[in-house]
């Protein structure tokens, strides 16, 4: 008990550092990636390849004054960005990056990540409500209905993986996929995953991850063409910075989950040198896909988004769940 808890405290510190570094450099990666897609160079002045841009941005943000709008609820206004950051940090504690690099592997790891991810929408509500801004308020309402709608298919699809693995322990799930690329959960027919519907599960899960992290094309919370900047319209300085970091940290968590559940975690596709490198490689490839998608698609509408969830993803994931259960029973 005692050691694990200390481990956790240490891990939280490391997680904050990891999340912050990732968030900062994902902003850089996003800007560079977007620029490449649009045939621009992107940030390239500060440091080689513009690598000094994120710390400079951070310094700029920190040096700015946090303006609290008149009539805003000060406590919640300041508390909301912090709340945006903490679920991600908590989730990092239980994510296994490799056999040995895990802060605290609890046997309900999946549940823990979902539990904390689900609290993320509270920060949007508080930010939207406390800013006393109509745009922020509308954005908060949207963000909530969105995250509620997409949590359901996401959980249901996760259950298919849990059923196949027979465990909610993230380590265990990765171990079952580790023998070769064909045993990854995304690839059907071999290993433990008899389920030929696994690619569909992966797709549903991925779409839900996009929606849960408020990424384009589901970034309705901050739909800048109508809601200006959504829930963080009134935020400047580090309040904005924390929201930004929270968003990217959530993306990292989402990609970590996808990697672990479907792509074999830290296992190597060819059975060679398994380790944290493979995990990070898969993680950043997924994040690159996130960026790629964001700069390709236009935004959906709020009803289009809800229709997609309620009319397509939830029925499909339910059917998927039933069929998977059946397949597991049969084979």
């Amino acid at each position: 008990m005692s050691l694990t808890l200390l481990n956790v405290i240490f891990a939280v510190v490391v997680a904050i550092a990891f999340a912050a570094a990732n968030a900062a450099y994902l902003v850089w990666a996003e800007r560079r990636g977007a620029a490449r897609i649009q045939r621009r160079p992107g940030p390239n002045i500060n440091g080689p390849f513009g690598l000094l841009q994120p710390p400079l941005d951070g310094i700029k943000l920190m040096a700015k004054q946090l303006i609290i709008p008149g009539g805003a609820d000060k406590v919640l206004f300041i508390g909301a960005p912090v709340l945006a950051m903490y679920p991600a940090i908590m989730s990092f504690v239980t994510i296994p990056f490799s056999d040995s690099i895990v802060a605290h592997n609890i046997n309900v790891g999946i549940l823990m990540i979902f539990a904390f991810a689900s609290t993320g929408s509270m920060s949007l509500i508080f930010a939207g409500w406390s800013s006393r801004n109509k745009y922020s308020m509308m954005s908060a309402v949207r963000a909530v209905s969105q995250s509620v709608a997409y949590e359901i298919p996401m959980l249901i699809t996760t259950i298919t993986v849990v059923m196949i693995a027979g465990s909610m322990d993230l380590m265990e799930i990765v171990h079952q996929q580790s023998s070769s690329i064909l045993h990854w959960n995304i690839f059907p027919l071999l290993g433990k995953s008899h389920n030929i519907l696994m690619p569909a599960s992966f797709l549903i899960f991925f779409i839900c991850t996009l929606a849960e992290t408020n990424r384009a094309p589901f970034d309705l919370g901050e739909a800048e063409s109508e809601l200006v900047a959504g829930f963080h319209t009134e935020y400047g300085s580090m309040g904005f910075g924390l929201f930004f970091m929270g968003e990217y940290a959530n993306i990292v968590i989402g990609s970590c989950m996808t990697t672990i559940l479907f792509l074999g975690g830290w296992s190597c596709p060819f059975g060679l040198f398994p380790g944290v490198w493979w995990f990070l490689l898969k993680l950043y490839l997924l994040i690159a896909t996130f960026i790629w998608i964001r700069w390709t698609f236009p935004r959906t509408t709020i009803y289009g988004l809800l229709n997609l969830s309620w009319k397509i993803l939830i029925p499909l994931s339910l059917v998927n769940l039933l069929l998977t259960a059946g397949l597991i029973k049969v084979f």
Binding site: A34, Q38, A216, W295, P298, R299
Partner: peptide
């Protein structure tokens, strides 16, 4: 227009 709908890259291609 596409940027209004949230897609940014087409604007850049169009501008080229």
């Amino acid at each position: 227009f596409v940027m209004d709908l949230g897609g940014f890259s087409p604007l850049m291609y169009a501008l080229q």
